[in-house]
Design a protein around this nucleic acid. Structure first.
Lengths: 328, 328
DNA sequence: TTGTAGGCGTTATCAT
DNA sequence: ATGATAACGCCTACAA
């Protein structure tokens, strides 16, 4: 039924090891032998069983990608890019959506541990300790989180926040709100830190209005709180949150951006389609996913010399054309 | 370094076979033996190597999900649900985004063939022949495509299209356009068929304006063609296409829905956030993903008696509040 | 250059 | 109820 290396060997009139060599190391075998083998392979439609190979070599050719929520276009975009990159490098991808639940994260990782050569952990929600406990067991690259001794791909949130605040400053804003993301999110802390730091040197007050799930619903739920602070602008943890805000503000008959400015983070497609279009701090999801996989493969190749961290740029995308402040 | 079943056996003072039994079939072993084994397992932190198990049992505990484009929120939503369901049933998921390229689809499937117990093929772009060639080799469930002898999960496109056309009819529309999706998409043909069939019994003319990639860009590119037909309403293959249309129409200073109505398909979150919100034919992505996995597991359990096809409902979601026609 | 003989970790068969 | 033993498919010394 299932064609194995032995079938190929028999048909080619050689031993299994020769088949193996002919495939793995075409130079290490006589040309005519290789010819025989290749013909047999084609004829039988032989495909090596990677599961069996993994048992023997200890390498599976698989990567594990773990992320908080695939419904967030940011992660979908990153995974798409990562998966494409992985395939180009002859690797398959296990996908695990933990649905924002830190508890299942480490469980999932442990379950997949021996089925992958390494993990790309996107915005992991686990504690530093839990993650560190994994170190040495399996190559890991962190996305959107910085934690020694792991290699990681992060975003230059400080730059993005500075660009955004400068933008708001020029428009005359004096008080801005920040709607935070998950407490367990390193990126959230980083963005807030960047925002605060950018505000220090400017006459702008930053008000942290609290944490919301990084979803449209989460953002919508925070709109009233934001309004109560009387700010003229609000920065959200990410685009989904910002869109939720935008929507609820519109329901409340507040005009964006005339009465209140909203700025998101990620630059997902969706942010460009709403109207008024969302001003946001954009990132290159494709590059993020690629970089993650590249770093991971480097780490796997040489665990002793893990590659350096990579910090990717952010770029403010101003979309609302009439950011005129009318302080209230 | 890595703890195997033998380590457990040694520590528990039993044979490897007993460890295996104690874990797989707790009843088939003496209570005190099981006790010993469980203690050893905990102490050593033993986790069975699923790769090795797969080699022995022939079952991997993995599913493969293949889809055209993860950047499409419809597929992201379906995959999220499917993945969650799979995990609940103790299965892991391989993900493959083929980026709308039929050529890589079968290649990918063949590559993963021995690493999964079955495939969930979402909107497969391959030909009937290519797919049928896979039959018998591995359990397969089709999503968004009907093709004997495969079990499948499909949508009641005809119903959705009928609802939409009735809606347009009531509003007085006489000529509507359909912006098609990929030619290789079964769902596209089905939707067009449903639309045509619904139009037969009504005084409405359906004009197929051509094929567009099922993306925002694809939709945008078709806007001018749609305008040239002079229709008062346009149905798009999916929401992304519809949103592209919406956007470009707005750029052309056409008012939606006053001057032209736009209707999408899928009911992705995005469609509810734009303004005017997109009227669309909604589906339950979560249920689709769940049903896909459920069917697949049934098929795997008993390949001789594959489960029946499942056709899931569609529901027109009217969002634009002022669908008044001003025929031109 | 090629074949033979393990072994990877697990499960299943067969005695005991 | 338990323990040897033989697979599963592949890879890699080692020997020829």
């Amino acid at each position: 039924m299932t064609v194995t290396i032995k079938d190929v060997a028999r048909l080619a009139g050689v031993s299994a090891s020769s088949v193996c060599r002919a495939l793995a190391n075409p130079g290490g075998v006589r040309p005519d032998t290789r010819e025989q083998v290749q013909r047999a392979v084609r004829e039988l439609g032989y495909v090596p069983n990677r599961t069996a190979r993994a048992l023997s070599t200890g390498r599976t050719g698989n990567l594990g990608i773990v992320l908080p929520d695939l419904a967030n276009p940011f992660f979908a975009g990153v995974v798409k890019a990562a998966q494409t990159r992985a395939r180009a490098l002859d690797h398959s991808v296990f996908l695990s959506d933990i649905d924002e639940d830190p508890a299942v994260e480490t469980l999932l990782i442990r379950a997949l541990l021996r089925q992958v050569d390494g993990f790309l952990l996107c915005s992991p929600r686990s504690s530093d300790e839990e993650l560190r406990a994994l170190h040495g067991k399996v190559p890991i690259v962190l996305l959107n989180r910085r934690l020694t001794p792991f290699p990681s791909v992060t975003l230059d949130a400080a730059s993005g926040m500075t660009q955004a605040l400068l933008h708001l400053h020029v428009l005359g804003h004096k008080r801005v709100a920040y709607v935070a993301g998950p407490r367990t999110s390193w990126a959230n802390r980083e963005r807030l830190r960047g925002l605060r730091s950018a505000a220090e040197s400017r006459p702008i007050e930053v008000i942290e209005v609290g944490t919301a799930p990084p979803t449209v619903e989460g953002g919508a739920a925070m709109a009233d709180v934001v309004l109560r602070t009387g700010v003229t602008a609000v920065l959200a943890f990410n685009d989904l949150t910002a869109l939720g805000l935008l929507n609820r503000l519109r329901d409340r008959n507040f005009h964006v951006p005339e009465e209140i400015s909203v700025i998101g983070f990620d630059g997902i497609l969706l942010s460009s389609l709403v109207s008024p279009a969302l001003t946001t701090i954009g990132v290159d999801m494709e590059r993020i996913g690629q970089a993650g996989v590249d770093l991971l493969l480097e780490t796997m190749a040489d665990p002793a010399h893990p590659p350096a961290h990579r910090k990717l740029p952010t770029q403010l995308i101003v979309r609302s054309s009439t950011d005129v402040v009318r302080p209230h």
